[in-house]
Nucleic acid binder design. Structure first.
Lengths: 145, 145
DNA sequence: TGCAGGTTGATGCAGTTGCATCTATATAGA
DNA sequence: TCTATATAGATGCAACTGCATCAACCTGCA
C-alpha cells in the first residue's frame, strides 16, 4: 500500500467528490425550487413502498446507508409530517415496523417526476448511453467488497 | 427533458452517490483513526500552499466548492487552531488574504501520506490504471458546463 | 462627484449531524 | 434457567450547516 498517489488516482478521487457534489446539489436545488421532498425522504418512502409488509429501521439503515442516529430522527420527522407510520413490532419488542402512509405515497409520487427530470438534466444528458453504462459499471467496482 | 429515467441513468445516479459515500467515508474513517486533519482542512491548506501570495476566501470558495457561510466559519476554526493566518487585504478593505502558517504546512504534510494510503486503498486499488483514467474522464464530463 | 447596485465576508437562528451513551430486549451458551 | 453479550433504537450535548440578512466596501455610470 503506497503513500504515493498517482495523478490518475488523484484525479479520479477529486472528480468523484466534485461530480457527485455538482450533480447532487444541482438536483437538490431543482427539488427545493419545486417544493418537493428531499432525497432522503424520497428514498425512505420508496423503500417502504417496495416493502409493503413493513420495514425495520435497521434494514433501512443498511440499504440506504444511513447513520443509526440520523435515521432514528429522520423517521421521527417523517412520522411527524404524516408520511410514515410506526407500528410496534410483534416479534421484537425493541423495534417497530415502518409503513408509508397514503400521504407519504402521494408525496413520493408527486416528487418523482421532478427528480427524474433533474437527474436526466444533470447526469443523463451529459453522457451517451454507453458512457452512462460504463460509468455505472466503474462506480460499481468501487462498491465491491 | 423527460420525466422518465432510464434504468441505466438511475443506476449511474445511485452508484455515483453510493460510491462517493463509500470511498469518502472509508477514507475519513482512516483519517480519523490516524488523528490527522479532516479533508476540508487538508484541501484548504493545500490550496493555500499552492498559492503562496495569499488567497482570498472567495477564491477558495470557488475552487473548493464551499458554501460562503461554511467557509467563513471553517477559516475561523483554522485560524483558531493556528493553521491559517488572516491578513487584511491592502487592495480591498472588505476582505483579507489567507496564508498557511508553519504549523498548517506541517500538519498538512503529516496528513498527506494517510490520505494517499487511504485513497489508494479505497479507490486506486479497486480499478486498473486504464479504468481509473476512464472513470476520471467520465466524471469530468459531469462537471462540464 | 455621488449614487445604485454588486461583491465580500460575518452572523443570529433554527435545524441537522456526530458522538457517546443509555434503555430495553433478544440470543447464545454454561 | 440464568447470565453474558449483542442488537434495536432513542437521546443529551456539542459541533456544524443552511438560510436569511447585515454591514462594509467596491465599481460603474450619470
Amino acid at each position: 500500500m503506497s503513500d504515493k498517489l498517482s495523478d490518475t488516482v488523484t484525479r479520479a478521487w477529486v472528480r468523484l467528490v466534485r461530480a457527485r457534489h455538482a450533480v447532487v446539489s444541482a438536483v437538490e436545488t431543482d427539488a427545493k425550487e419545486a417544493g418537493v421532498l428531499p432525497v432522503e425522504w424520497y428514498d425512505v418512502l420508496w423503500d417502504l413502498e417496495r416493502h409493503e409488509d413493513g420495514v425495520r429501521p435497521f434494514e433501512l439503515e443498511q440499504r440506504l446507508l444511513f447513520a443509526q442516529y440520523n435515521l432514528s430522527r429522520l423517521i421521527d420527522r417523517m412520522v411527524e409530517a404524516g408520511l410514515v407510520k410506526k407500528v410496534a413490532c410483534p416479534s421484537d419488542k425493541r423495534g417497530h415496523m415502518l409503513f408509508a402512509t397514503d400521504a407519504g405515497r402521494k408525496a413520493r409520487k408527486a416528487t418523482w417526476p421532478h427528480y427524474a427530470r433533474a437527474v436526466n438534466k444533470h447526469l443523463g444528458d451529459k453522457l451517451t448511453d454507453v458512457e452512462t453504462e460504463k460509468l455505472a459499471a466503474l462506480l460499481g467496482k468501487l462498491l465491491e467488497k
